[in-house]
Amino acid sequence: MKRKDFIRYTGAGAVLLGAGSFPYEALAAGDATKLTLLHTNDQHSRIEPFPMDGGKYQGLGGFARRAALINSIRSEEKHVMLLDSGDVFQGTPYFNKYLGELEIKLMSEMKYDASTFGNHDFDAGMAGFAKQYAHANFPFLNANYNFKNTLLEGKIDEYKIFKRGNIKVGVFGIGIELDGLVPPDLYGETKYNDPISNANRVAAILKHDHKCNLVICLSHLGYKYDTNKVSDVAMAQQTSNIDVILGGHTHTLFAKPEEYQNAAGQKTIVNQVGWAGIYLGRLDFYFEEKKNALLISGIPKLVSE
């Protein structure tokens, strides 16, 4: 290992974090590309902050504040992506009255890059979702629902590839089993297919066919369960080629992102940020040009905070 690399991989975090500065600013300016991932999950129609009524979350959240926060990050960072992991709908009278119209309008205005289906996104029925989706300027991605014979047939892509500087980011979506969770007449003919095999299939396409530098799964499976129910943790461990799983459904607020060893012995990072837009998740990735890519295992490495 070259001396420069040695400093970067071992010394930097320990020495420079203490001084309060970030290693790359000091050591690798110019030769690393930084990608900032901002993410939400389970927004649940919380358009305004929680009311000041003595409740646990009073005064927290709100689209207008989140938008301001996102804007300020966008003004500071060159390469930003804004992603969501589903359950945009349901939870306040805004949804009961407007059936998701405002949520989709605001997410479009905030320039979300992509979202995926949560179980509550079917709460207005297929027709209800299709109606609002026609006004969205960002995609809902899903690779394990078959929408044949529904109003969404041909309208939902499995994945989308984003270019940020010299970095190609592949994003795909995975949804939860609908049977028993969503009334059948709401999801209609939508068929749920196995999350693991489909995640594996699409992640391989993104990583190998499209040569994406980062593969992100937007998942609404839920963090993990006591039973053998499929979850983000199970998906992280049983698949290959997924770098990051941004989760939802269980409304879990991670203290920090979690790392799991995937089926290929590589690292998959899982994160989830509570619910109701009280939180805006942020992960910054640093990309470097490397030789012998396949020989490097256990990357990327967590370096801060």
Partner: peptide, 26 residues
């Protein structure tokens, strides 16, 4: 050569509170 994610960091997410001024446009 290939671009690879070599490092990542995260920020505390507990941030959407009254310290943030709402965006008027929204």
């Amino acid at each position: 050569k290939q671009y690879l994610p070599t490092q990542y960091s995260y920020k505390d997410s507990r941030n959407v509170d009254s310290t943030v001024t709402s965006l008027a446009k929204i």
